[in-house]
Amino acid sequence: MGIADKFENKAEELKGKAKEHIGSATNDQGLEAEGQADQAKAGVKQAGEHIKDAAKDVTDR
């Protein structure tokens, strides 16, 4: 994965955290849940990046 993809996924995670906190502060359960979903989606993408990076390290040896 390229650095741009990693940056984009981290930005999505941070956006999700912001939504979750705003939803919590305003008692908007929908926004809070949306933020949690954004964070989960970003986490899955980041896990995929780690797997691809590890596979690349193995094949580069």
Rank of each mutant, 00 (worst) to 15 (best):
E12L: 12
V44S: 08
G30K: 10
G2R: 06
D5V: 04
I22V: 15
K17N: 11
K41I: 03
E13M: 09
E13T: 04
D38H: 00
K10N: 10
A4T: 12
Q29A: 08
K45V: 09
D53K: 10
K6F: 14
H50E: 15
Q29N: 08
G48T: 04
G43N: 09
K52F: 11
E8Q: 13
K41L: 07
E12H: 06
Q39L: 01
A54T: 09
A4M: 11
Q46V: 07
E32N: 05
E34S: 10
K41G: 08
A4E: 14
Q36A: 10
N9T: 09
L31C: 00
K52E: 15
A25W: 04
S24E: 14
T26V: 05
G16P: 01
D57N: 04
K45A: 15
A4I: 13
A54H: 04
A4F: 14
E20F: 08
D53R: 08
G30E: 14
E13S: 08
Q46H: 06
T59W: 02
A47F: 08
T26N: 05
S24N: 13
A33N: 08
E32I: 02
A47Q: 13
G30N: 12
Q39K: 15
A55P: 01
A11V: 13
E34V: 01
A11K: 14
E20N: 10
A47M: 12
A47N: 09
